[in-house]
Amino acid sequence: MTKFLLAVHVIAAIVAIGPVTVAASMFPPAARKVLEGSDDSSALATTRLLHRICQVYAVVGVVVPVFGFATASDMGVLGDTWLIVSIVLTALAAVLLAALVLPRQSAILEGADQGGTIDRAATVRLAMFTGIFNLLWATVTVLMIIRPGSTTGA
């Protein structure tokens, strides 16, 4: 059962978290294209699509910690330090996405809809928060692979 839970957890992480990290990273440059009044008529549509991807996959991403907890419980490692750190970092990433990244993307899109007024500084701050979000996920991924104290020898 552990192998099944772990496989679902890893696949869910790849399928759900990967698109959020990529789309969130692509959003600020796409928003800057809209700000610059790019001749590319699809720039605003691209920005809207990236935001929608972030919203949908953020919800789908809830599956990752659910199967993560199930896997950890089955493996008997719920009290291990590396897992607790991973849980805290995952929670921080989720809060960052829900409280700072998604609302700022929405605000930028609202500004674009109200006459194209996008604050360049807002896109820079959004890029910073997105970078922190991505760094948190990269750290969790490394912890999941290395698993300090693991018997796999990794």
Rank of each mutant, 00 (worst) to 15 (best):
L50M: 08
M144W: 04
I11Y: 12
I118K: 05
I14V: 15
H9C: 05
L44P: 05
T130G: 15
A154P: 00
Q105F: 06
Q55R: 10
G18V: 03
V63Y: 01
L5G: 10
I14A: 15
K3S: 14
R147C: 04
V8L: 11
H51P: 01
A30Y: 09
R120A: 14
D74N: 10
Q55K: 14
T151N: 11
D80N: 12
L89K: 03
L136M: 12
V101A: 12
T130L: 01
V88Y: 05
T130D: 13
A45Y: 10
V60W: 10
A91S: 11
P28E: 12
P65L: 01
C54D: 11
R32E: 13
L143W: 15
M128H: 13
V10K: 06
E110P: 01
A127I: 00
G131Y: 03
L49D: 14
L78C: 01
T139P: 00
L49I: 00
V59S: 02
V56A: 14
W137I: 08
F4P: 01
V142H: 06
G111M: 08
G111L: 10
V60G: 06
S25F: 07
A72V: 04
Q114Y: 03
I84Q: 15
E110S: 12
L102Y: 07
V34Y: 00
V20S: 13
L44A: 11
S73K: 13
K3G: 09
G76W: 08
T123H: 01
V88I: 15
V15R: 05
A112L: 04
A122G: 11
V10Q: 11
L89A: 07
T130S: 14
W137R: 01
A94G: 15
G61M: 06
A7K: 02
L35H: 14
A70H: 09
W137E: 10
H51A: 13
V77W: 06
Q55W: 05
L78D: 07
E36A: 15
D113F: 00
V15D: 13
T21L: 15
D74E: 15
E110A: 11
S38Q: 12
R48F: 01
L5F: 11
A24G: 07
A24P: 06
D74L: 00
D119G: 02
G149I: 01
A70V: 04
A121W: 12
M26V: 12
A99P: 08
A112V: 11
I17P: 00
G131T: 08
G18H: 07
G79N: 08
A7T: 14
